[in-house]
Design a protein around this nucleic acid. Structure first.
Ligand SMILES: [Mn+2]
Ligand SMILES: [Mn+2]
Ligand SMILES: [Mn+2]
Ligand SMILES: [Mn+2]
Lengths: 217, 217
DNA sequence: AGTAATTTTTAGTCTTGTCTAAAAATATTT
DNA sequence: AAATATTTTTAGACAAGACTAAAAATTACT
């Protein structure tokens, strides 16, 4: 059995080291889950004895195949629940993360799969993050950062890297949502800001904002 | 903040003493939640200091108004999730309890209320149990046990007292479901069994079964 | 290479929730 | 009313998960 706390560590390792494949430092995990390095050491030892993680003292952790699958399942649940909350319960995309953090720990494979079917097998969550399938796989994101797009070209907003409520609310306020068509009008070298145009308006976005917007072209 | 464990104790006290209004014994709680009396004593002390329970040593526990409301909220969540699982995800009524035991602890008032709306404000869960409203109230059950019904009279199956999977599967096997019209044909004094008739068949049910079937007439 | 800074681990403590065994209180019999 | 049985509480221990402070290992710098 994988406990709630273990699941959170698995997720952290998964996210920090490319799907848990590369070694992650104790400190990085501690920072990510807002705990202390000593707590992390304790837990990764536990994950290692449970064969969920590969751990060599002082050399970081990565996930075993079993650990990777367990982590992907938690992420799958998290993202499916986010879809449910937004599409079925009419939550806004900036309100769902904390609730999904709780729902992702509910244990029932039948539940996940029935939820998946009920939602008609979504491939992405409300923030554009891909939803792993039952085997933990998903097709790599093909969207590119808006700063890589040539002036004059356009694309569809399909993924936001930062899905904190602060950033999402910035997007809400400025009427930017997933699925919007965005054209890059101008790049300003002085501060790396961009002038963009949507179907309804023209606006300037800062470098910080631009770094978090990904379009599919 | 009310922890998961506290919530389970609140529910137990609520269920064992008429909505937590009358005092419940330590042993009764221990048996109900499958733990030990000493653990119960510890927890009810904690509930008392948190003003959720009224506790006098050696004299059992009841719930304060605050405790009663907290318990009702957990039960509300449990039953709403059961409705969701059966009505939306197509689970069978004998499969939902354990999953609802997990979902009932998810903390978000917004979630409960949006779920309630999504389900179109159901008044009863898949086993006929009433769903408390936001204030913890529900109209008393007006259904009566099938053994109280006069021979020749009929009613609609609207509540099953035992909602263990074993019993529910017995009902499944015999094609008895909530909403079915059932007529009482005969009462057998020797073993208290009943001969009943549904729209599709005639059958004999034991006293044990009869005690758990409630009809509205 | 040798010292300093940083990271990681260990050692020991704490909280929550649980348990067993023993003591205390209450309830039931005789 | 005393003796016995049952229930409840207390005392002490344990596991999980987290923390602080100190020690050990690694990395960075001169
Ligand atoms: Mn999220
Ligand atoms: Mn997301
Ligand atoms: Mn139930
Ligand atoms: Mn129920």
């Amino acid at each position: 059995m994988v406990t709630l706390s273990e699941e959170n560590y698995l997720k952290a390792i998964y996210h920090l080291g490319k799907q848990g494949k590369e070694a992650v430092s104790t400190n990085a995990i501690a920072e990510h889950i807002e705990s202390k390095a000593s707590s992390v050491t304790d837990m990764i030892k536990k994950l290692a004895t449970k064969n969920l993680a590969n751990y060599i003292k002082y050399q970081g952790v990565s996930l075993t195949e079993e650990g990777r699958l367990a982590a992907a399942l938690v992420i799958r649940k998290h993202r499916l629940w986010e879809v449910f909350l937004v599409n079925k319960l009419n939550f806004s995309w900036d309100e769902v993360h904390d609730i999904a953090e709780q729902l992702e720990h509910v244990k029932s494979l039948q539940l996940v799969n029935k939820l998946d079917a009920f939602l008609e097998y979504p491939t992405h969550d409300p923030h554009g993050d891909p939803i792993p399938d039952k085997d933990g796989n998903y097709s790599p994101i093909k969207s590119i950062n808006i700063l890589e797009i040539d002036t004059g070209k356009e694309g569809t907003l399909s993924f936001v890297k930062d899905s904190s409520d602060v950033f999402l609310r910035y997007l809400n306020k400025n009427n930017l949502a997933l699925g919007d068509t965005i054209k890059v009008l101008d790049f300003e070298p002085f501060d790396n800001s961009l002038t963009i145009e949507t179907t309804t308006k023209k606006m300037i976005i800062s470098k910080e904002v631009a770094q978090n917007l990904y379009l599919s072209v």
